Amino acid sequence: MQGYFVRIAPNEVSVSHPDAVRQLLHAQIAKGPWYAIMSLPDYRYVNQMSELDPKEHIRKQRNIASGYALSNIIQHEPHFDAILRLLTTRLNDFCESGQPVELDRWFTFFAFDAVGEVIFSKSFGFLEQGKDVRDAIANQRLLAPYATVMGHYCWFHNLTLGNPLLSRLGIQPSSHVFDTCIAAIDARKKNPAKRNDMMQKWIDTRAKYPDRMEEVEIFSTAVGTLGAGGDTVSATIQALFYLLIRHPRHMIRLQDELDAAHDRKELSPIVKYDEAQRLPFLQACVCRNTLPVVKVWF
């Protein structure tokens, strides 16, 4: 790494100096081999997270960028609202019955159903059924410690959980998630009435640049985004409520802000993105406190 240090004084070097940063940006340093384990469901499906070659990573990122655009995500708000209403109904049922509720489970159910909607307009039914369907989420949590260790032994992973034979047989821990992705992609190809979700953005990119984007990238990106997005959304919601419960005065202040905005008729029954943007204390709770905690976790 000596070539990326910039001497700024006779006995001083810097890695944060603008010249050093420019050298690092143009260096295109390859990722470590550990990231290869992020290819899901098996080693054939290399996504933007598992791609080690910096040039290929840039190409893949350029192909899928349109799906992640905020303008594309925002248009799915009505579908998020339906999932939020279902979550509210489930939590109200617990309140009326007086039974304890495992918020982490229900927040995770919501997160994966919501991410499923934005990727390919199809939730997994976790909230509707009120359970972890085929233990897909539980199995995915077990994959985290597995990946932590086996990422250093990818050759062994490719013989076991990363083996294409297991994905063909559908006996991997997250086979339900993969099966749902495959079914959604197949249904999309046959359905002329399509929604402009992430999947459609990637299909359109593939149609426009067939020489730049392979079809297998659509599936690998969908699965990778689902796993990363579901966990991150769930962790963010859990962290937010955990911190608020641990600090009641902040919970009260946030409730007061929400009540005041409601009295001014500035909030919809299900708060919209642009309405939430005008709530400064809510934004402080999410952006300045919760998200930094989640980044440390991940």
Rank of each mutant, 00 (worst) to 15 (best):
D179C: 12
I137P: 00
W155D: 05
A144G: 08
A187H: 14
V177G: 10
A144W: 10
F178R: 02
N163H: 07
Q140W: 01
A136P: 01
Q172L: 10
N158F: 10
V177R: 08
S175I: 01
V133W: 03
D179R: 13
A138K: 12
P145C: 02
V133L: 12
N163P: 06
K189V: 08
Y146Q: 00
G151M: 02
T180Y: 11
R188W: 08
L143S: 04
L143D: 02
F156E: 02
A187K: 14
D179K: 15
A144N: 13
C181D: 05
D179I: 07
V149L: 09
N163T: 01
N163K: 05
R134C: 11
R188Y: 09
A184I: 03
L159G: 04
S167D: 06
G162I: 05
N158H: 15
L169E: 11
D186K: 14
N163W: 05
L169M: 15
L159D: 01
Y153H: 14
A187W: 09
D179V: 00
L159H: 08
I185D: 07
L161G: 03
S174N: 13
Q172H: 03
L142R: 13
P145E: 04
D132H: 01
A136T: 07
Q172V: 08
A183S: 13
S175K: 07
P164F: 10
N163Y: 03
G170I: 06
L165A: 14
M150P: 03
A144H: 12
L143N: 01
L169N: 11
A147P: 00
D132Y: 03
A138V: 09
D186C: 09
D135I: 00
V149M: 05
D132E: 06
K189D: 15
A147E: 08
